[in-house]
């Protein structure tokens, strides 16, 4: 069980391998998801992610606890960066393990849906035209209703 909030880049391969190596017996499925900075309109100089230290970790731990209540999970990793990053840099990852793949896949999707709109992160995009906060999307809020 781990929630990590950090500004430094992470090594996806190393994280995934370490997660896999730490599993006990019987975990037949490991799912990982990685979020990457998108240059949606073209010309993105940087993306800056602000967060609420303290509440961020607390919110992520609550989201993890909800996932563990709903699915039979071995382990969970939620890693999310803050600070300034460029297009194509990795922002965050989740990893889940379970005996069979359905639990690990569904829990990973649940974690993603919830951390998008229930964990206190805010994205700001910097382009040649200026800077602007990314607006929350109704679809992200709607996505919570399916759980």
């Amino acid at each position: 069980m781990a929630v990590r909030v950090q500004s430094e880049p992470f090594d996806l391969g190393a994280e995934a391998n370490a997660f896999a190596a730490a599993q006990g017996g019987g975990m037949g499925a490991i799912v990982t998801f990685t979020g990457v900075v998108r240059d949606v309109a073209g010309g993105l100089d940087a993306m800056e992610i602000e967060h609420y230290p303290g509440m961020t970790e607390r919110a992520l731990e609550q989201i993890e606890a909800q996932a563990r209540d709903r699915w039979g999970l071995g382990d969970v990793l939620i890693l999310h960066r803050y600070g300034r990053m460029r297009a194509d840099e990795m922002i965050m990852m989740v990893a889940t393990s379970s005996r069979h793949r359905k639990d690990a896949f569904e829990a990973a999707e649940f974690l993603m849906d919830y951390l998008k709109s229930r964990a206190p992160f805010w994205k700001k995009e910097y382009t040649a035209e200026g800077a602007g906060w990314v607006a929350a999307r109704d679809e992200d809020e709607d996505a919570l209703n399916r759980w």
């Binding site: 979020g35 992610i49 609420y52 509440m55 999310h80 922002i91 965050m92 993603m112 951390l115 998008k116 709109s117 229930r118 964990a119 206190p120 992160f121 805010w122 994205k123 906060w133 990314v134 607006a135 929350a136 809020e141």
Partner: peptide, 9 residues
């Protein structure tokens, strides 16, 4: 704390 809707992930 006051803030806009969150945009993580």
């Amino acid at each position: 704390a006051f803030f806009p809707p969150m945009t993580g992930g």
